[in-house]
Design a protein around this nucleic acid. Sequence first.
DNA 1: CGGCTGATTGATTGTGCTCAATCAGTGTGG
DNA 2: CCACACTGATTGAGCACAATCAATCAGCCG
Lengths: 250, 250
Amino acid sequence: MLCAAINRSQTVSHQVSCNDCSLSPICLPLAVAPAQLDQLDRIIHRGRPLKRGEHLFRATDGFSSVYAVRSGALKTYVVSDEGEEQVTGFYLPGEVLGMDGISTAHHVSNAKALETATVCEIPFAQLETLSQQIPSLQHHFFRLMSNEIRSDRELHMLLGKKNADDRVASLLLSLSARHQRRGLSDNIFRLPMSRYDIANYLGMAVETVSRIFTRFQQQQWLRVDGREIEILDRGSLCGQNHDPAMELLL
Amino acid sequence: MLCAAINRSQTVSHQVSCNDCSLSPICLPLAVAPAQLDQLDRIIHRGRPLKRGEHLFRATDGFSSVYAVRSGALKTYVVSDEGEEQVTGFYLPGEVLGMDGISTAHHVSNAKALETATVCEIPFAQLETLSQQIPSLQHHFFRLMSNEIRSDRELHMLLGKKNADDRVASLLLSLSARHQRRGLSDNIFRLPMSRYDIANYLGMAVETVSRIFTRFQQQQWLRVDGREIEILDRGSLCGQNHDPAMELLL
DNA sequence: CGGCTGATTGATTGTGCTCAATCAGTGTGG
DNA sequence: CCACACTGATTGAGCACAATCAATCAGCCG
């Protein structure tokens, strides 16, 4: 009895509406007119926080919802036939994950909290129904999925054509941009993921990531303190994607 | 005058309706009830065939449509800052391309015909409107995009964790499966793309692809004659994705 | 015929992986 | 409180896989 009461009160405390959420301008609500926002609000479930290492969903789970990150960070990963893990994405506040499961009735990836995280669960069937009524929501969701595809294309380029240095630089710049989007500093931030996750995501060995971090630091492009990152020379880091100007200087 | 007449008659001859198209069961029409099929049919443009090497769209073009392949084959590719091409996908009859441009108002990749190809152009704005009226069409399009994301995840695994042999084997098996889906032989087929495109797509050098084809042939897993492929030992080819049973035999 | 593209094969090189050791930080149990 | 184990990160040494360089060959077309 007591337990149930506590759970209920906890649940209530998590029931922040989209109206009160600071992420509204970059999250799903941006596609919905204020007058219709409560319709979206009503279908969203806001569960208890996930602890570091806890799963939001697993590849074997039936698919029923997509999720928007409210706080913290998560990674998604798939497991190969041989049991190898492949990290397929990192998700920060305001970002939506789980869209790869729509076509298969079950999730295809696993989602695990990298640190304490809260998410908004959006039942997909209800989202589809709502999208029938709110054209801008349908449009936004098409865009959201298209964006996922687009960034996968960029990643394909990264893994196929770029060397280890470029890959690390690109990830750092991506994280930086995503921080800025939330109104946070784009130069100083904390990595939510381990070196292992970074290496795995970028298709390289942990040792290589470590070496590159120290090298970037020696070159004064970066200040690294564990997971704390400060970008000192953004230009060089960008140009790490092989600046054509560099070639002229040789 | 004569020319115009010829063009018109050509145009007419391309105006096959979805009803008459043999790809209906695996293409967009599968999501639409027969009674509503003509609504979909009316928004689709069926252009003249593309010749080998011709572009369907370029990254700089404004985005307005997605495209379904009716015959032939196309590749999509992006170009990096340094001008390097990265092939991001191959598209066979019944498959839809161009969905990466939805979120950006312009295409992000280029689409080029690998051989003579015909495509159905589907204006996206009209498709969105129609999706508002036909829930199953909206649902199917969500699934279509989700599928694209899902196969990108698998590709991520392939590029991040698998060696050159695995990558080539995977591509061959994927092409085989997609042929079977169309009711064609899954063991004998013709590669629509060059060794260069295969290498580029899989993030390796042409020479490596060539060597692997000859090795697979020596092992009697494959019969290769230029672009003609016959799969002789599907099991070994699958197991090339590192069969756990192999380890037990060592 | 010569020029061209696409594919194959050989020889060499190099980037990044593997193995291995060390170290710092953290939590655990005696 | 300290010894211990454990995890995450860093650094070094050697090696392997695949890239690169280079040459050859087949098919095709002007």
